[in-house]
Amino acid sequence: VDNKFNKEQQNAFYEILHLPNLNEEQRNAFIQSLKDDPSQSANLLAEAKKLNDAQA
């Protein structure tokens, strides 16, 4: 993981990586967004979790 991520951002990265119901395309999009703007990690994680739950 890129060293410019802080602890919260790293946690978001790993959580998104391991959400079971996202397809690869969705997962990659969230990860790319996280890399583009790490400050949005909490929002991105919340969105990813919502999508993950919706696809459960």
Rank of each mutant, 00 (worst) to 15 (best):
residue 14 Y to C: 14
residue 40 Q to L: 11
residue 32 Q to R: 07
residue 44 L to N: 03
residue 10 Q to L: 08
residue 49 K to T: 04
residue 32 Q to L: 06
residue 42 A to T: 15
residue 8 E to L: 02
residue 20 P to M: 13
residue 8 E to S: 01
residue 26 Q to G: 01
residue 19 L to V: 01
residue 56 A to M: 14
residue 6 N to F: 02
residue 46 A to L: 10
residue 52 N to V: 03
residue 30 F to I: 03
residue 56 A to Q: 15
residue 9 Q to M: 00
residue 20 P to E: 15
residue 36 D to M: 06
residue 13 F to Y: 14
residue 8 E to C: 01
residue 11 N to Y: 14
residue 50 K to M: 12
residue 35 K to D: 05
residue 1 V to G: 10
residue 4 K to M: 15
residue 32 Q to C: 10
residue 51 L to V: 13
residue 55 Q to E: 14
residue 53 D to F: 15
residue 31 I to E: 05
residue 24 E to W: 10
residue 28 N to M: 05
residue 52 N to A: 05
residue 7 K to D: 15
residue 16 I to Y: 00
residue 37 D to L: 12
residue 18 H to E: 15
residue 13 F to N: 04
residue 24 E to R: 04
residue 25 E to P: 09
residue 31 I to M: 14
residue 9 Q to D: 05
residue 15 E to T: 12
residue 9 Q to R: 01
residue 16 I to W: 01
residue 7 K to Q: 13
residue 28 N to P: 01
residue 2 D to Q: 05
residue 20 P to N: 10
residue 11 N to T: 09
residue 53 D to G: 06
residue 38 P to T: 04
residue 3 N to Q: 12
residue 23 N to F: 14
residue 35 K to R: 14
residue 51 L to F: 15
residue 37 D to R: 08
residue 47 E to A: 09
residue 51 L to W: 05
residue 16 I to Q: 01
residue 6 N to S: 02
residue 28 N to G: 10
residue 13 F to V: 06
residue 31 I to D: 01
residue 30 F to K: 01
residue 22 L to S: 00
residue 3 N to E: 05
residue 14 Y to Q: 10
residue 41 S to L: 08
residue 48 A to E: 00
residue 33 S to C: 13
residue 52 N to M: 03
residue 30 F to R: 00
residue 42 A to W: 13
residue 39 S to Y: 09
residue 49 K to G: 05
residue 24 E to F: 04
residue 38 P to H: 10
residue 12 A to L: 06
residue 49 K to M: 06
residue 33 S to I: 08
residue 13 F to A: 08
residue 5 F to L: 05
residue 52 N to K: 02
residue 3 N to R: 01
residue 46 A to M: 12
residue 55 Q to W: 15
residue 23 N to T: 14
residue 32 Q to P: 00
residue 19 L to H: 02
residue 43 N to H: 07
residue 36 D to E: 09
residue 28 N to I: 11
residue 49 K to Y: 08
residue 43 N to I: 14
residue 21 N to T: 06
residue 1 V to N: 04
residue 10 Q to D: 10
residue 15 E to W: 10
residue 29 A to P: 02
residue 33 S to Q: 12
residue 44 L to S: 03
residue 53 D to R: 10
residue 5 F to C: 03
residue 20 P to W: 06
residue 7 K to G: 08
residue 52 N to F: 02
residue 30 F to N: 00
residue 39 S to W: 09
residue 11 N to W: 10
residue 50 K to I: 07
residue 35 K to H: 08
residue 17 L to W: 11
residue 35 K to E: 08
residue 29 A to K: 13
residue 22 L to H: 00
residue 38 P to L: 07
residue 6 N to Y: 02
residue 55 Q to N: 13
residue 6 N to Q: 01
residue 3 N to L: 01
residue 39 S to K: 12
residue 7 K to N: 13
residue 22 L to M: 05
residue 36 D to F: 08
residue 35 K to Y: 08
residue 45 L to R: 04
residue 33 S to T: 14
residue 42 A to G: 10
residue 25 E to Q: 14
residue 6 N to I: 01
residue 1 V to R: 02
residue 3 N to W: 01
residue 48 A to W: 01
residue 17 L to A: 12
residue 3 N to C: 07
residue 37 D to K: 09
residue 36 D to T: 13
residue 7 K to C: 12
residue 40 Q to Y: 13
residue 8 E to G: 04
residue 13 F to K: 05
residue 52 N to E: 03
residue 22 L to E: 00
residue 43 N to K: 14
residue 51 L to A: 14
residue 6 N to A: 01
residue 32 Q to W: 10
residue 23 N to G: 15
residue 55 Q to R: 01
residue 18 H to L: 13
residue 47 E to G: 06
residue 9 Q to E: 06
residue 11 N to K: 11
residue 35 K to G: 10
residue 26 Q to T: 07
residue 45 L to T: 07
residue 34 L to R: 00
residue 20 P to T: 15
residue 45 L to I: 05
residue 29 A to I: 07
residue 18 H to I: 13
residue 56 A to K: 03
residue 27 R to D: 00
residue 16 I to H: 00
residue 53 D to T: 09
residue 41 S to W: 10
residue 39 S to R: 06
residue 30 F to C: 03
residue 24 E to D: 10
residue 38 P to S: 11
residue 2 D to F: 02
residue 48 A to K: 00
residue 4 K to S: 08
residue 22 L to N: 00
residue 17 L to M: 11
residue 28 N to K: 11
residue 48 A to Y: 02
residue 6 N to T: 04
residue 34 L to S: 02
residue 32 Q to K: 06
residue 46 A to T: 14
residue 12 A to M: 04
residue 6 N to E: 15
residue 51 L to T: 12
residue 4 K to Q: 09
residue 40 Q to T: 14
residue 42 A to E: 13
residue 23 N to Y: 07
residue 30 F to Q: 01
residue 32 Q to I: 12
residue 48 A to T: 01
residue 23 N to W: 11
residue 5 F to A: 03
residue 18 H to N: 09
residue 27 R to Y: 02
residue 19 L to M: 11
residue 12 A to D: 05
residue 13 F to I: 06
residue 46 A to P: 01
residue 8 E to Q: 02
residue 40 Q to D: 12
residue 5 F to V: 05
residue 21 N to H: 07
residue 54 A to Q: 15
residue 22 L to W: 00
residue 12 A to F: 07
residue 35 K to V: 12
